[in-house]
Design a protein around this nucleic acid. Structure first.
Lengths: 350, 350
DNA sequence: TTGTAAGCGTTATCAG
DNA sequence: CTGATAACGCTTACAA
């Protein structure tokens, strides 16, 4: 039904080998021959057969993209960045959505990418040594967003700096009773964002002479529902915080809701700061730490393709992109704090 | 480096053909032979070469998934549904993100799926005759979510019913000055959701004896920013609506923000109803029409795989999934309406 | 039930 | 600069 390289060769009056070279833009083909071949090819509507090409060359021109949850804002953004770079380079994107622990286990048990990709991009997936080893066993370039592993290409943000900015913002506003809504409980060693953000929380507290107390920490699983619940726990404890730092915007959204349901106001009673600058953060007037999400995906994909093209893994272990504190209406000076309250002007409701 | 089918054959002391049959679970292989082959195969860590298999069989075991914007809530959900079905069936998912008009044009100009997929799933993409023809030219089963085209497998919701429920809800609350925030201006013939929803708007208005006026309609492009702007236009006109029906939740979110920024309250001054039941709808206390999004993806994928397996296109032109009105706090009786106000109890803030 | 052998559509090596 | 020719790894009649 559809025409093959041999068909093109026959009609152009040259050998298949020449057609192959001509169409791929290889040297050692005279321009007149190439022109003829190209013309015949698109007269015939010739399209190369990927299977044939892959079998013969050994390269798939495909990148596997492994993502925990396609349906979460963050991953949709990263994929957008990755996709545009891959597409522009003529690579196919094979999507693997893990979607929870079951899918994750199945993935690592079967490693379905074996023999079908030239490289793999892993998006913000908590990775331990075993997982890193499983990827390494594929013997293809691996790119990471959000974590750094020796021997892989990585792009991340400076989580410490971002979280520090968020926390300093709160302490400058006079807050001292600051709660933390963290991610999950057990994060593998190579997935540092939750650890780094928590570390910054502790350090900033320490820098203003406040002692850490577990009473002011709750886990929110990086989801809205988790944030909602975590905030519930926090409000149920003895000391009510005057501010909350959530490790992600979605958790912050959940927390804001719980606060309001409890009859309290944001920011008058409790200030809330998130992390990400989610699409909805502006709408909900949430103070947050903006990170370049699409760009992380694009940058990581670019590094991966460079690696593929050069054969050399990237020199730098992980590229670090900047974050920026975006102050909105969900954070305000501590009520009655003499130091800061005179700077405070009321903001319009979102 | 990695072992081939021939390696397995040699070690198992059988022919390559037998290995092929044994590993694929085909009949006409004795159980003892199959057992031996399987054992040798995983001793060797044998993994089939997709390229070889594809070239020989002509089937790619891959489905191309074409999506307008991966980073929008709706599409992330649909992809999740599609992915789980494909993965379970052992199919690969090749992702094509159009990401706007430029990408869309490039896609249709190049049709990069040619020769690389067994079937295509098109997610809520506005499709005209030309596009439908382009897909048909691939000569593979095509699945659609959100539109119906003759000869394609389709899954959609009853947009008329959904929008009617939303509009009736508003008219029952006493509203008569109801604005519509519609999608884009130019929707191709085969992409009916915006048309159907608008039709329902007109019909319900008509059923209560209200005449349509363009003053009460604005386009929001199915985005939050678009909804924000559309609401701005509506408020700038002579007649201020007492209620707004937005064709998507994201547009509704934007509209709510504009309303509040204008110093008005939702629902006291203006009721707002959306469409989708977006993750954030509950948080923002938005009355909306819930549609089963993940399930639409899963159902469409299932139909597509059935078609692929049987060779028969689905009998029914498009499967229709139900919607359901979810009443939350963003809609309330028309202020001062004697008919309905006695039923109204105040709701807690979100 | 199993084996033989001819492809499938490219690429790549090596002559010419 | 161009052409034979041998892979690449598997599937699938067709035979046995």
């Amino acid at each position: 039904m559809s025409s093959t390289l041999d068909d093109v060769a026959r009609l152009a009056g040259v050998s298949p080998a020449t057609v192959s070279r001509a169409l791929r833009g290889l040297p050692r083909v005279s321009e007149v021959t190439r022109a003829r071949v190209v013309q015949v090819a698109d007269e015939l509507g010739y399209v190369i057969s990927p299977s044939g090409s892959r079998l013969a060359s050994g390269r798939t021109h495909t990148v596997g993209v492994v993502v925990p949850y396609v349906n979460r804002w963050f991953f949709g953004q990263v994929i957008t960045g990755v996709e545009s770079v891959l597409r522009a380079a003529g690579f196919d994107l094979l999507l693997y959505n893990l979607g929870g622990d079951a899918g994750r286990d199945r993935f690592f048990a079967e490693m379905p990418l074996r023999r079908r990709v030239d490289a793999v991009m892993v998006l913000s997936l908590p990775i331990g040594d075993a997982e890193a080893e499983a990827f390494r066993a594929l013997r293809v370039p691996i790119g990471l967003v959000g974590s750094a592993v020796e021997g892989f290409a990585g792009v991340r943000i400076d989580d410490v700096a971002g979280a520090t900015a968020a926390m300093r913002h709160l302490t400058h506003l006079g807050h001292r009773e600051i709660a933390l809504i963290s991610g999950g409980a057990d994060v593998p060693m190579h997935f540092t964002p939750p650890i780094d953000r928590r570390g910054a929380y502790l350090d900033v507290l320490d820098s203003v002479g406040v002692e850490y107390t577990p009473d002011l920490e709750a886990a929110g699983d990086f989801t809205m529902a988790g944030g909602e619940q975590a905030m519930g726990e926090l409000l149920g404890r003895s000391r009510r915080p005057t501010a909350v730092f959530a490790q992600s915007d979605e958790m912050a959204f959940g927390a804001m809701r719980t606060i309001r349901r409890a009859g309290l106001r944001v920011p008058e009673d409790i200030s809330v700061v998130g992390f990400d600058d989610h699409d909805m953060a502006d709408l909900l007037d949430l103070t947050t730490v903006r990170q370049p999400v699409v760009e992380q995906g694009a940058t990581a994909a670019t590094m991966l393709l460079d690696w593929l093209a050069s054969g050399e893994p990237p020199a730098e272990p992980a590229k670090v992109l900047p974050t920026r504190l975006i102050v909105r209406g969900s954070s305000a000076p501590l009520a009655g704090d003499p130091e800061t309250s005179r700077h405070h002007a009321p903001r319009p409701e979102a």
